[in-house]
């Protein structure tokens, strides 16, 4: 073991709470990757709750800790926590997989959702946020996720990438965008839920 001789530099209570919340939300997004529901629109594409986790991280932790939480999610997946969709892990999913754009979008999406929902970087009471603002925040988040996802897919799979954006959108996103409406509706219900308001 290496020995440190300088004095202990304690983490403050507030930072410890935020760090614990960010890490546990990252784990929750990972756990949500395993939860799948049958899709009423197309049977072959199950609905998983990862993106819902990103929405909730932005709304409940705010823009700063919400996006830091997603950074932890990516870092944990890169070094081997089975948190990416289907229980996969490894740095390859962040640097070489065609789905890398979706993963890299999560910190940005959570940040933007938090910024819109809380109207700034300081946290406000989430159950007081008007529903249209919540929905708008999540629509913006969805646009970021699928925008990054489509561009990432095109960059990895096609040459030149900008000439094949529609093919990339067709393969990577088209089947998944409609069910995001279901997740947005669920997220609004969750945020307004009494159990969450009390937590």
């Amino acid at each position: 073991m290496a020995t440190n001789t300088e004095s202990v530099d304690l983490v403050g209570d507030e930072a410890a709470t935020n760090l614990a919340r960010a890490a546990l939300f990252a784990a929750l997004v990972g756990a949500f990757a395993y939860v799948s529901f049958p899709n009423p629109l197309s049977a072959g594409v199950p609905i998983t709750l990862q993106v819902l986790g990103v929405f909730l991280a932005g709304i409940m932790l705010g823009p700063v800790w919400g996006s830091l939480s997603m950074v932890l999610y990516l870092a944990a997946g890169a070094v081997g926590a089975p948190v990416f969709s289907g229980g996969t892990a490894g740095i390859s999913y962040l640097i070489a997989s065609p789905t890398l754009g979706f993963l890299w979008s999560y910190p940005f999406a959570a940040g933007v959702i938090g910024l819109v929902a809380h109207r700034g970087t300081s946290l406000s009471e989430v159950d007081a946020v008007p529903t249209p603002v919540l929905v708008g925040a999540m629509v913006a988040g969805t646009a970021i996720i699928y925008g990054f996802g489509t561009v990432g897919f095109a960059v990895i799979q096609y040459d030149p990438w900008y000439a094949s954006l529609w093919q990339a959108f067709l393969v990577s996103s088209l089947a998944f965008v409609p069910v995001e409406a279901v997740k947005i509706a669920a997220a609004v219900g969750i945020v307004k839920n009494d159990a969450i308001a009390a937590a």
């Binding site: 939300f25 949500f32 909730l56 969750i190 159990a195 937590a199």
Partner: peptide
């Protein structure tokens, strides 16, 4: 979806 996520999020917090 709401039920699963509410339970997940409250326990996580």
């Amino acid at each position: 979806i709401e039920r699963v996520a509410v339970a997940g999020a409250t326990r996580t917090l």
